[in-house]
Design a protein around this nucleic acid. Structure first.
Length: 182
DNA sequence: TAGGCCATCTGGTCCT
DNA sequence: AGGACCAGATGGCCTA
């Protein structure tokens, strides 16, 4: 709808500064889902893909062209945490290179000494949570993959995680260009 | 067989 | 104290 498009444009304008806080990412996602579901995907996809072929050399063929292998396709992960978590704090996105300005994680060895080891029970709980967290991440990527036109995986092979992320950025940029021209 | 991709485990750090 | 997040290590599966 026009309202969705307006909101989407506004959100994109904010995001074009290359800094994408979690709220912005969520807003983009919501608008894209709403907007795309209300229009003729064939037309959009055809136009985008025609442009895609022209700009393919940007990175698609050079470094991240769809590769034939993706073991995940054979072993679809069963995800128990379908909800998507967007906790991108202090994250910058510039073109296709991510810069994660995360916390300092390395500490001098001297500081590590003397810290009591986690109990087995707590370690098992932490492992379980980590497993769920990674499955949630995989599920989110799986859903993201579904929003990309099938032609992005040229040989019919599912995209890898990194390809999914990169192509999604490319797809959003192309959708934004399309919108800006209307 | 090498290399890519992935899931899982683990220990460390930061945050609430 | 416990949860969230991160990165390194490890091993399995698959393809060229």
């Amino acid at each position: 709808t026009s309202g969705d498009q307006l909101l989407y444009k506004t959100t994109l304008a904010k995001s074009l500064s290359h800094t994408l806080p979690a709220e912005t990412l969520n807003a983009i996602r919501r608008c894209l889902v709403t907007w795309i579901s209300n229009m003729n995907l064939d037309v959009v996809t055809a136009e985008i893909l025609s442009e895609w072929k022209c700009h393919e050399s940007a990175f698609g063929e050079n470094q991240e062209s769809p590769q034939p292998t993706s073991p995940e396709s054979q072993r679809e992960s069963v995800c128990s945490s379908p909800e998507m978590c967007y906790s991108s704090q202090h994250r910058e996105i510039k073109d296709f290179s991510f810069t994660f300005t995360s916390r300092e994680v390395t500490a001098p060895p001297a500081q590590r000494q003397g810290k009591p080891k986690m109990s087995t029970k707590r370690r098992m709980k932490a492992s379980e949570r980590e497993k769920m967290r990674m499955r949630s991440l995989a599920e989110a990527l799986h859903q993201l993959r579904d929003y990309l036109p099938p032609d992005y995986s040229k040989r019919g092979q599912p995209l890898t995680k990194i390809q999914t992320l990169k192509y999604t950025i490319e797809y959003i940029n192309k959708l934004a260009d399309l919108l800006s021209r209307t």
